[in-house]
Amino acid sequence: MAEKGGKGFSSLSKGKTISSSGKGGGKESNLSTKQGRKISICTSSSSESEDEGSLSPPPITPSSDKWGKGGKAGFGGKGTPLSGISSNGKAGKSSSSDPSPKIPTFEIEGELGKNVKCMMDCEALDVLERIQESMVILSENPDIKLPESFIKGLQYAKSTSCFKNPEKARHVLEELKKQKVSDTEICLVANICPESVDELFALMPNLKEKKKKNESAVKDVLGELAKLKSA
């Protein structure tokens, strides 16, 4: 689990890793992945451990967060990524071994639990808007609170959702299942809302791998989808 985040942020934390003695270096590099990327994330605080076991909400601890602040300073104002090279040869190494990180493929089907289903942005918009309508009545009660993320989540769905009728869009996209496109990939296709086959294949390289087999089917589906676009 830890390597997921670590991998991605290697370049972010570069600034910091350079200045630190690279304590976690040995351990972290074992995590280097099939993509051949070197991981150099700083393991400054153990507070980021996974303790999602308990069912009831744990207390939120506004403790000092070394990573957040330190990390930001690292790639923020203090010192450009390059400025650290002289202090430690490691920086040069990590940047040269990692000239262009490979774009990770979107494969989360196995990652989602049994009780989790992905949604298309337009489906989420539908549900969130309905909740917002009912909140007009409920908000008269001061006891009832909405999560702070609700409005942001709603606004995001508004900005990305491109189908007025989610059921129809889903129905059209179900066709892709015959091409062995998973549920989660179908949702991503809907969220990308591609205008052309080229666009879709560029953004979802794992679909492109089966291009020869599925190109015409994908084309048909995108043609149908275009008719459903709301704006």
Binding site: K4, G5, G6, K7, G8, F9, S10, S11, L12, I41, S45, S47, E48, S49, E50, D51, I60, T61, P62, S63, S64, D65, W67, G68, G71, S100, P101, I103, P104, D198, E199, A202, L203
Partner: peptide, 23 residues
């Protein structure tokens, strides 16, 4: 999205992105 990182103390995600794809 190139990578994500969960920060337990802030209960939030940090995301590393990239523009290195067409479109």
């Amino acid at each position: 999205v190139m990578g994500t990182k969960w920060v337990e103390s802030k209960r939030e995600f940090q995301v590393l992105g990239s523009l290195k794809l067409d479109f």
